[in-house]
């Protein structure tokens, strides 16, 4: 369970929608297009949380999704990073006063990186990944 340089060069991403309006999800798909090509840095979208190193969560967490989010987080193999994309995940955004919210994502699972925006541009998401890599390198150096 140790952090290694190879982890930073091969981040596999699992995308989880916790009740988002789909705006952020479309921006995530835009990030993966040939124009931005994150595969240059080894970033790959995977279909199973077991394969993933990064959990990319969008949306405020609805009551229905809270338990699913916890379970998906628990299914990931360590070391793992959680990245929140979009304003909703940080504060609830336009849904913050809704009766159906289990709260922003950081009240459900620990979050490492926030990417604000409604919806954030692909450049901002890539910047978030770079921040995640920097955090991993810092943790690796500090241990």
């Amino acid at each position: 369970m140790k952090l290694t340089p190879s982890l930073n060069r091969s981040l596999w991403v699992f995308h989880f929608n916790a009740g988002s309006c789909n705006g952020c999800d479309i921006e995530i798909v835009a990030t993966l297009t040939p124009r931005y090509d994150p595969e240059r840095f080894g970033v790959k979208l995977v279909g199973s949380p077991r394969h993933a190193d990064v959990l990319l969560v969008t949306g405020p967490v609805t009551n229905q999704m809270a338990d699913r989010l916890r379970r998906v987080y628990a299914q990931m193999a360590g070391p793992k990073v959680v990245m929140v994309v979009g304003t909703c995940g940080q504060s609830g955004g336009v849904f913050s006063t809704s009766y159906n919210l289990a709260g922003p994502i950081d009240q459900i699972i620990p979050v490492d990186v926030y990417v604000p925006g409604c919806a954030p541009r692909p450049e901002a998401i890539i910047n978030g990944v770079v921040t995640a890599i920097a955090k991993l390198e810092r943790l690796e150096g500090g241990k």
Binding site: K2, T4, S6, L7, A77
Partner: peptide, 15 residues
Amino acid sequence: QPFTDVKKLFAKQSI
């Protein structure tokens, strides 16, 4: 890249 991927997988937790 495949070498990096395998190296990373070997350093990760096996559930």
